[in-house]
Write a protein that binds this DNA or RNA. Structure first.
Lengths: 317, 317
DNA sequence: TCTTGATATTAGCAATTCATCTGCTAGGAT
DNA sequence: ATCCTAGCAGATGAATTGCTAATATCAAGA
């Protein structure tokens, strides 16, 4: 049972002519005639009275036409809506990122991408790390941006960039005048920590342990923005990724002290579902991110990114 | 675009399994898989996420499923209703008859037919002759029963039976005692005539003219029942087909006098649209009528009627 | 009856569809 | 980690289907 057959029948019913209906459907009169006969045979009824000119619908045919027409129209509407929705989806990149990837950074990438791909739309969700993994796993996001990415069967990890961890403190803090600081010097400081459930907290704890230091945890928060605010207000200190502090350092609200004698980095990674081929648009946006973060790392699928029209995608900020 | 494809997709969406959906649709898993792929290609979207087990619909696929399911269900409902309506139509005989064919006669035929064809339904409309021709011409009736059938390109005429015209008068009328009557004796009688527009009126006028008689037309009516009533109440006379008078003669209300020395008959005929092949049921009912009316006239299409299970159709009443 | 415009029919060809078989993948168990 | 199993996709050959072109048939009007 072909939908086209129904359309042909509806057209015949409207035009009262097989030939015209055939033309409307880009087929020969013969094909239309056969189609109608087949339809009637399938339904085991006579829909059209062919013994008069112009042909006429039987009462049954009339009834069938009225209902059928609606259904056919509705279906073609649905088809069109799905098609356009599909094009929309294809042109949209869904990214899931942890809070602290930094709105400032991502905005720049998005702006740059929109210049290169004017028809494209980028949507970034800033979420709790667990939610990021979820959205990647269930396909709601094309890819995710997380810190300390953990490999798994379910997803593939592409290293993106390493962020230097630095000590943040209020401008009025006694340490603010220092050029750098050794981990050991943090002992006794009022420390604002990440939530215990977060990987970064465990990594920092391990780092401090390795340097024989224990800090006095004043409070625990699950995102960078809250920690920054707490550092300011409690006049505490915190170890945070350097890029997330830039705005506050520029405005003078906070001071960022590099660690001396050692180094702690927060690796960021792109995660994406295995065997899940990304759309062309998503692929291009990922390439933009990667070339900005680490232009030399290989692409996991071996495909070449479409180069921007002027190679700007490879320019470091 | 096949309706079956949509059904397969809907089944896949319900079962979350291609194999099961394939079984439901009596096809192999391979065919179902190809069908789905084709559907997705046609719509240019991804409906199903095949990278997880059990498979899952994409958001787009979910949306398509919800709308599609309704449409498919509605269509199958429509299909079923049309099919059953078609069977109904096929089993129903639509007959258009002039008023005076006689309800008594037709009832007998219908009763007998219902015994032979228990599933069949017969519907008889008693109409003005012009309406009978119309209903046959536009296909609303399978065939028509008329008097003095006029041949035409539009319809075919099959002689059915001739009805003897007799003089009707009230039992109290002076002529009622006669055994028969000559046309000339009608001169001066209060005559109840058919409407001038009717063929039978013209035929009767011609008949009387040929016998050199003129009658005094008391009133004109367009159907036999009214004429009979008028004959009774006005104590007039009328020339009417003998079968239409039987009931009144039996009850003693009217007397029927055969014409002597001459004869006038009203031929009845079956009319049906040329090239309009009747359904099997209509054909059988027509055969019943014809064998009862004139068992020796040939059938116009050369087809043999299905004989009744005991040949009763050929028995004269 | 004849013409005209339109539909049905037929045969042959091209495209599609389907089933079998094989290879691959995801998920779960050891 | 590595194996096993169920389920899906892809290739190939067989069969069906759908289409076109040519021809026959038909209804309506002159």
């Amino acid at each position: 049972m072909q939908l086209e057959s129904l359309k042909v029948f509806c057209d015949v019913a409207r035009c009262r002519s097989v030939s015209q209906a055939a033309q409307l459907n880009r087929m020969t009169q013969s094909a239309a005639s056969q189609t109608l006969r087949q339809l009637e045979k399938h339904l085991n009824v006579q829909l059209i009275d062919r013994s008069v000119r112009p042909l006429q619908l039987t009462p049954l045919g009339q009834h069938f036409y009225e209902r059928c027409r609606e259904l056919v129209e509705q279906f073609y509407e649905l088809e069109a809506s799905i098609r356009s929705a599909g094009a929309e989806v294809e042109a949209t990149v869904e990214v899931a990122a942890i809070y602290s990837v930094g709105l400032g950074d991502m905005d720049k990438y998005v702006e740059r991408f929109k210049v290169e791909q004017p028809h494209a739309r980028v949507h970034i969700d800033y979420l709790h790390p667990d939610r990021v993994y979820e959205k990647v796993a269930d396909g709601t996001a094309d890819f995710g941006l997380v810190s300390f990415p953990k490999p798994s069967r379910k997803w593939e990890v592409i290293p993106w960039r390493d962020e230097e961890m630095v000590l943040a403190c209020a401008a009025s803090h006694p340490l603010a005048a220092r050029q750098s600081i050794r981990p050991a010097e943090l002992a006794g400081e009022k420390y604002v920590a990440f939530d215990k459930a977060l990987t970064i907290r465990r990594q920092i704890d391990k780092f401090l342990r390795e340097h024989g230091t224990t800090v006095e945890v004043a409070c625990e928060l699950d995102n960078v923005e809250s920690i920054k605010k707490a550092v300011e207000e409690l006049s505490g200190v915190a170890l945070l990724p350097e890029p997330t502090l830039r705005r506050e350092v520029r405005s003078g609200a906070l001071v960022a002290l590099p660690l001396s004698g050692t180094r702690l980095v927060r690796p960021l990674g792109i995660i994406l579902r295995r065997q899940h081929k990304l759309g062309a648009t998503a692929l291009r946006f990922m390439d933009l991110l990667r070339s900005a973060g680490d232009p030399h790392s290989p692409r996991p699928d071996g495909r070449q990114a479409q180069p921007g029209r002027n190679g700007a995608a490879h320019a470091e900020r």
